[in-house]
Design a protein around this nucleic acid. Sequence first.
DNA 1: CCCGTGATTTAT
DNA 2: TAAATCACGGGG
Length: 201
Amino acid sequence: MPAPTLHGFFRRDSVTVARALLGQKLVRVIDGQTLAGVIVETEAYLGPRDRAAHSYGGRRTARNESMYLPGGHAYVYFTYGMHHCMNVVAGEADDPAAVLIRALEPIEGVEHMRMNRPAARRDTDLCSGPGKLCQAMRIDRALDGVDLVTDERIRIELVRSRAMRGDRIGVAARVGIDYAGEWAGKPLRFFVRGSPHVSVR
DNA sequence: CCCGTGATTTAT
DNA sequence: TAAATCACGGGG
């Protein structure tokens, strides 16, 4: 009998996963050094019907191919000529939904993160945005498509006791998708209420 | 407010 | 082939 895996957590709809990821830990290992942060802000991207999603209309290209993997894999993309953004794929294989990780509260390897992000003036600037956290943790396309349960370089550690109660979760419209018509205003951004580490206060 | 920056996508 | 776009961040 195969050992049970944690993949089931991620094989749910992206809104459920986006909420459940708040409070969980993202861990990055570089040359034996560990960097880690608590996820404090996420956005759900629903799939082909969601005009703001990279998989809108069933779009499937070399860039977004990993969105079609089963839940629990990473989708990392490069944009604006200089920034990377990291998503956690949600749902079943061939259902191209994902959760954008928008902000972390740094908890381990903070000195290392400061070196990676010279522009950050305060620790609340270290990981308070999707591009910032990728810079702080050196996440790039080399990590696109990896399994976040088993990979040695990057993983998500799930601990039930860290899950957020619903009354601690704030909900708002997603950021930076004004082009998406009616989808621009939908309440698909989730954050830990009161956290100074979220990207938009 | 504006602009850098270049891969990716979309239009011709 | 060429043009437009972009799930952003930093500086004024």
